[in-house]
Write a protein that binds this DNA or RNA. Structure first.
Lengths: 117, 117
DNA sequence: AGAATGGTAAGGCATATGCCTTAGTAACGC
DNA sequence: GCGTTACTAAGGCATATGCCTTACCATTCT
């Protein structure tokens, strides 16, 4: 999706794959080396490494090579951007429903007093 | 991404495009017909319609044809699944950091009392 | 009825994605 | 040094994505 690819685009794209979400999920535990991360997945290592590359390129994780293994860890900032966007939308949606409810209640009241629109 | 495509995959994929996020964002206002939704975008209508199709197929929106225009509205449930997943991860992450902090504080205290690990 | 409006269908094109295999390279273990 | 371990590079293949254009309906306006 390099047509546009803002950080948010990339983060959501990264999270649209179950393998990558599982990695993110696992990294809540802290740092994990690539081999340990890859172990649960029935996938060739190079394929799995691509997923890590996607996560790293969009800034959801960082990694560092120590000896012959590479350790990965989450970067909450990028994750938060996406989560914050979702919460903000959720709030906007909820506010609209609240206003709608107030409006409906008001009309009901008016009707009770014989003052329809 | 029909390799896997759970609802969560599809929702995140749908949200990875800025045009589609803008549509979701706009629909917080309520129902909007396709032409009005499409108006801000410099894109042929059929291209835009594809984006709506993606949103509808993953359950983020529903639409209904009235007369010759189609009205779209948000479906919060699917959106919430994605938002909930993100919040749950965020919480797990925060909890781990809390435990880490407690652990570090404890060690600091121990050191102060001359009892290192 | 005939034209305009609001989509929808169909198909085409360039690029991206997700997987694979094979072939390296760098660090450790003996 | 030599084999093993842990990745990394390179390239290939099928399918998906995002855009386009050119038809083609329905519905509504005049």
């Amino acid at each position: 999706m390099p047509y546009h690819s803002t950080p948010l685009d990339l983060a959501f794209h990264a999270l649209s794959d179950p393998t990558r979400r599982a990695v993110v999920s696992r990294l809540a535990q802290g740092e994990v080396p690539v081999s340990a991360l890859a172990e649960p997945f029935d996938m060739a290592l190079p394929s799995f490494a691509q997923h890590l590359k996607v996560l790293e390129q969009c800034g959801l994780i960082v990694s560092e090579k120590r000896g012959r293994s590479r350790w990965c860890k989450l970067v909450p900032a990028r994750f938060d951007e996406a989560a914050d966007w979702m919460e903000a939308e959720r709030r906007r949606w909820a506010e609209r429903l609240d206003r709608l409810e107030v409006y409906l209640d008001k009309n009901e009241e008016d009707e009770a007093h014989d003052k329809p629109a």
